[in-house]
């Protein structure tokens, strides 16, 4: 991964530092999303109902139950190996689970009758290591699934892609390749790629964990913007600042169990469980 020096993340006005500032416009105003209307109403967007998962004889998830309402932002945290990434990957069936059920916008994830590619195309996912397709230009990364999955024309897909690139401040990079962008830029492209599909839900799997510290801000800014636009989000992260700022609820997991599932203020104010208190005291020390 190349690490191009980045301008200050767009928390304030973009800093004009010569050519870089022209290349990387920072965040632009305007909504990032116009979520396609959810088909089912009155039910939670994501309902996770008593799921358990084993790798062989090792149990990674134990009877996890929670819900995410439309427009809600839920942060999932917990020590490493606690099963939080596995849980979020169960939501779009990237990981199979043996017991329980997950329902996304009224569609059962574990059901032979479910068209999984179609369901997944409506659930955006952002990975820790970006996972842009290295052989495709940035704009082709954004267009591929729009064309092959949603059947959009090359023109429509390209236009949607460029709009979203502009929103995440990367218009000038449309024809570059992933290997030519910094980590922060790649992750913003990855978010734009997911948004290009007009998802009804966005899943984030430790989106800032693989970034150099100075690039975390620019990615979180895009996510904050997204949350404010009303996107339903499930975010696995250790960024407690982000959780404080935009989360509605915080889920704390340990050893494959949901130990705590609380409103943000309750969680940061007085976590009930000892394990959550211990975890918070450790990561908030610095």
């Amino acid at each position: 991964m190349t690490s191009t020096p980045m301008p200050a993340p767009g928390s304030g006005a973009p800093v004009a530092t010569g050519s870089e500032a022209i290349e990387d416009q920072g965040l632009q105003k305007g909504p990032l999303v116009t979520p396609s209307p959810a088909t089912a109403t009155g039910v939670p967007m994501i309902a996770i109902d008593g799921i358990s998962k084993w790798y062989g004889s090792f149990q990674v998830l134990t009877n996890c139950t929670t819900q995410v309402a439309k427009g809600e932002v839920v942060v999932v945290c917990g020590p490493s190996g606690s099963g939080k990434s596995t849980l979020i990957k169960c939501v779009n069936a990237l990981e199979p689970f043996q017991e329980g059920q997950i329902t996304v916008d009224g569609t059962r994830v574990k059901d032979r009758a479910t068209n999984l590619p179609k369901l997944r195309s409506r659930v955006g996912m952002v990975f820790q290591h970006f996972e842009l397709f290295p052989h495709l230009s940035i704009i082709d990364n954004l267009s591929l699934a729009q064309r092959k999955v949603l059947g959009r024309s090359a023109e429509d897909a390209g236009k949607r892609g460029r709009d979203l690139l502009a929103r995440v401040g990367l218009s000038a990079h449309a024809d570059k390749y992933p290997g030519q962008l910094s980590g922060g830029q790649q992750q913003r492209v990855a978010i734009a790629r997911a948004l290009a599909m007009n998802p009804i839900v966005m899943l984030f799997d430790e989106p800032t964990s693989a970034l150099d510290p100075e690039m975390v801000g620019e990615v979180l800014d895009v996510m904050v913007e997204l949350a404010r636009d009303g996107m339903t989000m499930m975010v696995v992260t250790h960024e407690m600042g982000f959780a404080r700022k935009v989360a509605d609820r915080v889920i704390f997991m340990d050893k494959g169990e949901i130990v705590e599932d609380a409103r943000k203020d309750d969680f940061f104010g007085q976590p009930r469980s000892e394990r959550a208190q211990h975890f918070l005291s450790k990561i908030l020390q610095h």
């Binding site: 990957k89 997944r120 195309s121 990975f127 397709f133 092959k148 999955v149």
Partner: peptide
């Protein structure tokens, strides 16, 4: 990387499409 297959799958590409558009072009290189 394992994530490449996951990313293709998560976008809604079928197994055949994942191979055709993502995995094989990179593997052949």
């Amino acid at each position: 990387p394992r994530g490449q297959r996951m990313a293709a799958t998560a976008l809604g590409l079928t197994v055949a499409q994942s191979y055709r558009y993502v995995l094989l072009p990179n593997a052949y290189r």
